[in-house]
Design a protein around this nucleic acid. Structure first.
Lengths: 161, 161
DNA sequence: GATGTCGTCATTCTTTCGGGTGATTTTGCA
DNA sequence: TGCAAAATCACCCGAAAGAATGACGACATC
């Protein structure tokens, strides 16, 4: 958390130094102090936005509510073609007993959708290595050696739709 | 959300204008363009941080974990505990339109069960290369690039249980 | 007999996966 | 405020998967 402020200070100082150095070479020579100011403004604005995003990243309050929804299932009714009439609730109990974290389950669902590790990484804004780590842990907890097997197990256990 | 960007632009422009105006009155007179740059930098950095904070204000995520509890209606017909009492009839029509052969579908179901190519080859008494060929053809017909994607497509299309 | 489909298998090459290990950072909680 | 869990990322290496091609035999059909 504090690291970012440090980075901000250091890089900011470097920026100022650079700008001040180049100032005497290009900008001021051409009598365009406005350009110099605009450049500083843009750079620091972008940097400030970056810092702001860093500081308040994923700082959400998660209010979890468990809603038990009882669904009457006619016994003779065949399984619906699209089984997603209900938004699907992953079996939280089983997830807990297996020790599968929310992030791992999230990656698992994307795996089940047929995405590659790289695509998942892009979609979640993390590195491919991170995805692989989550995958490996999830596979381990599911006792799966391959991603297809993990998907199969996940569906069996009611973790995946 | 976009309002903040607008505010940012407007206020940023005003700041630049103000600074450019005052520049000729105070700052440049004292030959301190550095001060001018630093001022711009600080102002815009603070402004950027503000914008970043605005944009990603801590959102309160209300996550409702819906636990779907299936209550079987006491019907006259005995309810199938597992919905696969019928051995699952793959959508033959769709299979035909896609031109997927029986052998390809057979391999596809084994893929969906999480078996590796080698395991499939062993189980079917064919070579691993053959399995790969069938896989490739099936993936092509399904428009899938990966086996997980093929499984997902196959389930969507009713080809796989 | 020519044609076409299907199943089988091989080779080469590239990409992706997965295991193993270690490290740092962030976060939630006591 | 400190600790434990979770999340993130990196690196290496071997195995698996997949793409691209070519080939061959069985079988059916015309």
């Amino acid at each position: 958390m504090k690291r970012h402020v440090l980075i901000f200070g250091v890089v900011g100082g470097l920026l100022i130094a650079t700008l001040q150095y180049t100032e005497y070479r290009f900008v001021v020579i051409q009598h365009s102090v406005e350009l110099y100011g605009a450049l500083v403004a843009i750079l620091f604005a972008a940097f400030g936005i970056w810092l702001g995003l860093r500081l308040t990243r994923r700082r959400e309050i998660i209010r979890e509510t468990v809603v038990v929804k009882e669904v009457l299932v006619p016994a003779e009714a065949p399984a619906p073609i699209a089984p997603n009439m209900a938004p699907f609730a992953p079996n939280a109990a089983r997830q807990q007993t297996l020790g599968i974290t929310a992030r791992e389950l999230e990656i698992l669902t994307l795996v089940a959708r047929g995405l590659s590790n790289r695509e998942i990484a892009t979609q979640l804004f993390v590195s491919e290595n991170t995805v692989k780590t989550h995958c490996a842990r999830a596979f381990d907890k599911l006792g799966a050696a391959r991603r297809t097997q993990a998907v199969q197990r996940g569906k069996e256990l009611g973790l995946l739709p």
